[in-house]
Amino acid sequence: MKKIIFISAFLMIFSMCFSVSAMESDGIVINIENANVIFDANSQWTFQEQQVIAQKITSEENEPFATYGLTCTLFGHKYTLETVQVITHNVYGEEPKCLKEVYNVSTCSRCDYIEEELLSTVRISCCP
């Protein structure tokens, strides 16, 4: 119950910062300030979960979210693992100005555990 209230309040507070657009071909894009967080079109996460993940990845918080339930404590997390891309615009002063980062994101379906692992980055020319 507490977990549900916490997540609901969290999403309500930050929902004003979000705008969502669906790409034509594939991927769900969540915009946060000057970054686009891109999820696979067939992502197993719900929209609410994607918003939480997007907020976590783009924040400077490095520690994984985790509230261990008894089941997770005894048997470990039940992981969902997907690749998420983040494009941050105008990071550099010179071309190519934007930065694309690829993360491996793990979540637990039983608790609030979220952890991201940076796989690689590439600078891209998407902004003039």
């Binding site: 694309k100 590439v122 020319s125």
Partner: peptide, 18 residues
């Protein structure tokens, strides 16, 4: 060290200055 490979062009390096 970061390595990224793509089947489509993400950059136009010919336009870079310096």
């Amino acid at each position: 060290l970061k390595i990224y490979i793509s089947t489509h062009n993400l950059n136009t390096p010919e336009t870079w200055t310096n």
